[in-house]
Design a protein around this nucleic acid. Structure first.
Lengths: 351, 351
DNA sequence: TTTAGCACTTAAAAGTATCGAGTGCTAAAT
DNA sequence: ATTTAGCACTCGATACTTTTAAGTGCTAAA
């Protein structure tokens, strides 16, 4: 596992050249483009050793070398240099994320920007360890209720329940109380289960009304938290997508919820997770790399931002972009709720 | 423009065979597969005339014929037979559209189903002639307001405004009144203009608070009303997408907002609009057909549902699917608001 | 340990040959 | 006047062959 300096230089040059050119890298290229003060024959010998050790691969005998998964991994863990974002990139990010809307909206904006800066598809996943903090029911008209769900980490979700009959105001207040008593502290993930219990316990008292509300909440929560933010147009321009089958597989892969789920699952235990090529459990992802960063604000987990691209992606740029976004969340973005607002609900309800 | 019976039969057979097979149709195929009681030579003569008249095209001299835009147009206007949806299709549609959520949600479900049934991308556009009927501002916590916009046709939209300072309840009531006085009846399309005026007139009185609210509303309204509901995976399996350039162009086209806008604009004056190939103003759409249907309920325009596919799409099936959806809106789906609820706002406001 | 030199391998590009589906036209048949 | 059999012709598609060039691995010398 310990490579001498020259081999390290060769490996990192191969990785970087291949990331840039998408062409297998030959010994001559290395000598000329990178400043390796050795002859091409020497480099060739080293490359052969690097191949035998599993860091490089050769598409065919008369081609240059490309990095293997192990090669990328070594590069990412040991050789990669940090890359600062350029002012242009920073300006672009800052001017596009305006901070309007709820946390979901902002996440969507972020994913959009990231996919543009990196020319690669971006997946966002929102917080799923969050819990319900408070529920509010607002009567919009006689047969229309707006249900607002506020979570501990500051997300606000709302949905509309259509009633079949007119309901008295005090009934709504009673129901709101029931919902709050039963649901406060419930993880969003488990909300549907708890709601089933609520129905069983209290349905009789309020007949169809509660059922409507519960159904609406369930539907709202079932809407997919994972969104794929395009960038597909852009990735298709990359040279690895020059044959029809690759494109089809990629488009299929990226539209298959299960695959995206599996990709994101793997990264659960690390703040910054990099899963390269065949390190992905899912076979269809074996030619791709998934980089995810947990987005946090004030030590609260807001969600995961993931980038899916070819193995040959710009690792340094991707990572620094994600980190910058996380920084931005902590330093400049104000979110829906600041900590001082906590606990206000019970005292000052107006409805 | 008047074709004799035999030529009509030939044209419709060419169109239908080509829709099915995606291969240029030759005279022999026509004689054998369709029951044309003439020799292939006779058919060839007629095909030549149909080509001279512009209904058919020949990719190259030793190939069969494919329909031209004019040919498809004649087929759609004069020859196409109505096609009833199969029970399987109807069941699938009915079981997938559950009617939960607001009108936007239902439209999204519908687009999803349609793209699956037709194996082709579907675009939905929501109502943009609708007007504001009533605005409600709900205080969620000290520094968080929920603004609910109700439109005349029953859409409910809402957004969240984050305040920098705590605001008194009566101030919120005053602001709500101002908003309602100024905005009731405003077309959603023009909302941002009117909001600018509101800021100018009333900003001084309520400083930053109103600005926050107005910005939130603006942002919410600026979110794209047009959504592209995938189906891209499926369309790529069709034989016209067998070369990389076609796929890239298509993916680019379909991700370009301006192109989609232009496609939908054209259909503005008809309930059912069919724009075939080169009839599309936008050059990039010249190989595609856009079919749109205005969705209405109780004579209220809810939005437009559009399907984008290759010229070689199943016109009859597409049209009958769209019509079935419209019917479904009228017969079985209940929406947020029924007409009786109208006018309730002013009398019974609880806030 | 490094390097010059060279034979060798192979994918990709360019060129060539063959095949066959489908045509248009002519002349004969209805 | 209309229809049809017959046939030469065209041209894309497919398969096969040749050429080219990039890059290697090995050997022997520095």
């Amino acid at each position: 596992m310990n490579l001498d300096e020259r081999k390290k230089k060769i490996l990192s040059s191969v990785v970087e050249d291949y990331i840039e050119s998408a062409e297998p890298v030959g010994s001559k290229t290395l000598v000329e483009k990178y400043h390796l003060d050795y002859s091409s024959a020497t480099i060739r010998n080293d490359m052969k050793i690097l191949e035998e050790e599993g860091y490089l691969e050769q598409p065919h005998v008369s081609a240059g070398r490309i990095p293997s998964t192990k090669g990328y991994r070594y590069y990412v863990d040991n050789l990669m240099k940090e890359r600062k974002l350029s002012m242009v990139e920073i300006d672009y990010i800052n001017s596009t994320i305006n901070g309007f809307g709820d946390v979901d909206d902002i996440f969507e904006q972020v994913a959009d920007v990231v996919s543009k800066v990196l020319s690669t598809p971006t997946v966002i996943t929102r917080n799923n360890t969050d819990t319900i903090e408070h529920i509010k029911v607002v009567k919009i008209s006689d047969k229309l209720l707006l249900i607002v769900l506020m979570s501990k980490n500051g997300t606000v979700k709302d949905c509309i329940a259509k009633l079949t009959d007119v309901v008295e105001d005090n009934v709504i207040d009673q129901m709101t109380n029931i919902l709050n008593q039963n649901l406060t502290g419930t993880p969003l993930k488990e909300l549907h289960l708890v709601l089933n219990n609520v129905i069983k316990k209290d349905l009789k008292a309020f007949s169809g009304v509660m059922e409507e509300i519960v159904n609406s909440i369930k539907y709202e929560m079932s809407k997919d938290l994972k969104k794929l933010n395009s960038g597909v147009e852009q990735i298709l321009e990359k040279p690895e997508f020059s044959d029809v089958q690759t494109i089809k597989n990629f488009v299929n892969m990226i539209s298959t919820k299960e695959i995206i789920d599996s990709a994101l699952e793997k990264s659960n235990n690390n703040k910054l997770s990099i899963v390269i090529g065949s390190e992905n459990k899912e076979v269809l992802l074996n030619d791709y790399t998934v980089i995810s960063l947990d987005i946090e604000k004030d030590n609260k987990y807001l969600g995961k931002l993931s980038v899916i691209g070819p193995k040959r992606m710009n690792y340094a740029k991707t990572i620094s972009t994600l980190k910058y976004i996380n920084e931005k969340f902590n330093n400049t973005l104000k979110l829906n709720k600041d900590s001082k607002a906590k606990g206000d609900y019970s005292e000052k309800r107006r409805d």
